[in-house]
Design a binder for these strands. Structure first.
Lengths: 220, 220
DNA sequence: TAGATTGTTAATCGATTAACAATC
DNA sequence: TAGATTGTTAATCGATTAACAATC
């Protein structure tokens, strides 16, 4: 059983659990019912001790000598990750990126339902994307209240991102996935994860420059 | 001057340099010509010693007692990050996501030019997105060779990602930004950075579950 | 029982931060 | 010169990995 009240763990653990969950879910569908940390590690390119340690923060899920029951561990991970329910999610900004996110099928598959997009452009407001309405920003607070939305995705231009964030926080949003290339300031109990696409490309460009000029040792 | 042949540094340093660069570039445009690591740190929410350490891997850019010359440091960082040139980039997959990426204006602004999209769907091939052509996958090798493309972005469905990766590697691509939620295997000298959007949302869902049930200590 | 594999401890590795001598 | 701020060293903190006793 998932254990209560265990102590701190690395920030990277949760994202790995998400990987484990996906792999196990797939194994489960393929009819495989037991797997060792060693075998799972080979499949995912992760050390077996890493897997065992990550799991150990949440409970004892395996059987010594036997490995892990795939169905059981999948169920426990689903619970731990909060995927045993559906999450309504809103997208701020109905530009190309916001629309692509609204249409991203993987999200729905994992229980994240995009329930509305928000924008301020006359042109966009009122339209819909695969049945998801584009609403005006001034309907935000009402919508969040009525639909119990706790998670928002920000896909607006950088200069609007902080303002939109403030509106979200005031309206009661608890978690934000931010795609705008700015570092957002929020109250203590709101969680923000930022994904900066340009920075990722720049890291690759750095690597290419390195290859080009043989100047620096790099990346581990 | 940017220093030659310094030793290993944390994997996180390059992404931070990218942040510093962006902030400095902006300061430079605002006409500010000197800044201390302390002031920059406050602005970016980073410790001043972190900034000085990150920079120290590449050279001595500051003046004791004075801080850093904004224009000069910007120029050096641009060089270090390989942003003193333009990079042709291709996008694999012309679905919603691939198209959104092709239209993402931030990329061009930082010197990354999307020069083509690739797909296999009859329906998509031949069309264009803001003047960027959608080509058939069988033109990949020829295109890469003729246009000296070294960076590719993967925006295809998960089950196609590894195959596409293999084609890219065979065609001579050196760096890949991967949006498919799978862990890609590549030859040693090809650099892959993966961004898994679902995993990010799942990390947020975990946090919300924690809030909901008060079960676990979390996130530092 | 013998073999396999867990969960956990301890060792290692890596990254951040504080502190300060060097120096503009 | 006196004050400010760098670049760097050393201390701290955090994450990964190896090793192994516990046990199925």
């Amino acid at each position: 059983m998932a254990r209560i009240n265990k102590y701190k763990f690395p920030k990277t653990t949760i994202e790995r659990l998400s990987y484990y969950f996906r792999a196990l879910d797939e194994l489960s569908k393929r009819g495989i019912d037991t797997i060792s940390s060693e075998a799972l590690g080979v499949k995912l390119n992760v050390k077996s001790s890493q897997i065992r340690k990550d799991l150990s923060y949440f409970g004892d899920f395996g059987k010594r000598g036997m490995g892990y029951d795939v169905k059981y561990l999948t169920k426990e991970l689903r619970y731990i990750l909060g995927l045993d329910r559906e999450w309504p999610v809103i997208v701020m900004g109905a530009g190309h990126f916001g629309i692509a996110i609204a249409q991203y099928t993987m999200f729905k598959k994992h229980g994240f339902n995009i329930v509305a997009l928000f924008d301020v452009s006359e042109e966009r407001v009122g339209k819909d994307v695969d049945g998801i309405k584009i609403l005006h920003l001034n309907e935000l607070e009402k919508f969040i209240g009525e639909n119990n939305v706790e998670i928002a995705i920000i896909a607006v231009p950088p200069n609007a991102a902080q303002d939109v964030t403030n509106l979200l926080v005031d309206a009661g949003i608890k978690a934000i996935l931010n795609f705008a290339p700015v570092s957002l300031k929020v109250e203590k109990d709101v969680r923000v994860l930022s994904v900066d696409l340009t920075t990722k490309l720049e890291a690759l460009a750095y690597y290419m420059s390195y290859t080009r000029d043989k100047l620096w040792k790099v990346f581990s």
